[in-house]
Computed example of a mutant assay.
Amino acid sequence: MKSDSATIDVPESSAEAKGKAPLMAAPREQKPAGIKKGIAIFDFLLRIGAIIAALAAAATMGTSDETLPFFTQFFQFQASYDDLPTFQFFVIAMGLVAGYLVLLFPFSIVTIVRPLALAPRLLLLILDTVALTLSTAAGAAAAAIVYLAHNGNPNTNWLAICNQFGDFCQKVSGAVVFSFVTVVVFVVLIFLSAVALRRH
């Protein structure tokens, strides 16, 4: 009887050991998913900030218009964003970037619900890189024109117009600042996507 009880106790203890092994490994498997979910939530919040910055850049540039008062209505000096193709490109580009961010909201939500999914994160990384290039090009081109508006270029007889069109220059300068805020947010988004993909 003693030998029978001894033989019965051995498989029970081994079964318990086998049952406990997966329970010990579960928290280790859930830890990367928790980190990736935190990254995905932070990514989502950054995208909201990028939408606000891109829309602010496009709206500020699109409403930049100033007319100088003169003696008669026949002689008026006016400055508007649509006088320069660079500023028109800026408004279109930042509008496209804002629209892109809105359209890709579902993919950002998918990365929160399914933090271990590889395809949505890879898609966001590729498209964010394209949007970063577009917003950087628009911001840099507009910044060059804003610099000329503030300082001019004596070698080419380009006069600084910001002494006369102060409100216009203030608006276009603010639009350029918003565009570079968008650029910085995109850099952080791409970095977060790279970190999330590296953990796969």
Rank of each mutant, 00 (worst) to 15 (best):
I35L: 15
T111Q: 12
I52A: 09
P106N: 03
F77Q: 15
N151L: 13
A143M: 09
A58Q: 02
W158T: 11
D65W: 14
A119G: 10
P106F: 04
L125A: 07
P120K: 04
V172Q: 01
S64P: 00
F70E: 14
F90K: 10
A59I: 10
A57K: 02
A140Y: 06
T156A: 03
F42M: 15
T136P: 02
N155V: 11
V113G: 09
A144C: 10
V177M: 07
I52D: 01
F75A: 15
A17R: 13
V97R: 00
P120N: 01
P11S: 03
A33R: 14
R121C: 02
I161T: 09
K37L: 13
A144G: 11
A141C: 06
I8W: 02
T129Q: 07
S64H: 02
P32W: 04
D4Y: 03
F71H: 11
A58N: 02
L124Q: 01
I48T: 06
K2V: 04
F44E: 15
P22D: 01
A144D: 14
F165K: 10
T156P: 04
A175K: 03
K20Q: 15
F75W: 14
L197V: 08
A6Q: 13
V184C: 08
V183L: 04
A79V: 08
I190N: 04
A58M: 07
V172D: 00
S3A: 07
L55F: 10
Q164D: 13
F71Q: 11
I8P: 00
E29Y: 07
F165I: 08
A142Q: 04
P27G: 08
S80A: 12
G34C: 10
W158V: 11
A57V: 03
V187F: 09
T156M: 04
I35H: 15
Q170I: 10
A50D: 00
N153I: 08
V97K: 01
Q76A: 07
S13G: 05
I109R: 15
L132M: 06
F165G: 06
G152D: 03
L55A: 13
L101F: 02
T7V: 09
V188G: 01
A98K: 04
S14V: 12
V97H: 02
T60A: 03
Q88E: 12
A119L: 14
Q164P: 02
S108R: 08
L68W: 06
A6E: 13
E66Y: 06
G95Y: 00
F44D: 15
A6F: 01
T72G: 12
A98I: 04
A57Y: 00
A79W: 03
V195W: 12
A175R: 00
L116D: 08
P22F: 01
G38R: 14
S108D: 07
T63F: 14
K2M: 02
L104D: 09
A175I: 00
P106E: 05
K171W: 03
L197R: 12
A194H: 09
S135T: 12
M94V: 01
P85F: 03
G19W: 09
I112H: 08
A58R: 05
F107T: 04
K171G: 02
P106C: 03
D167I: 12
F74E: 15
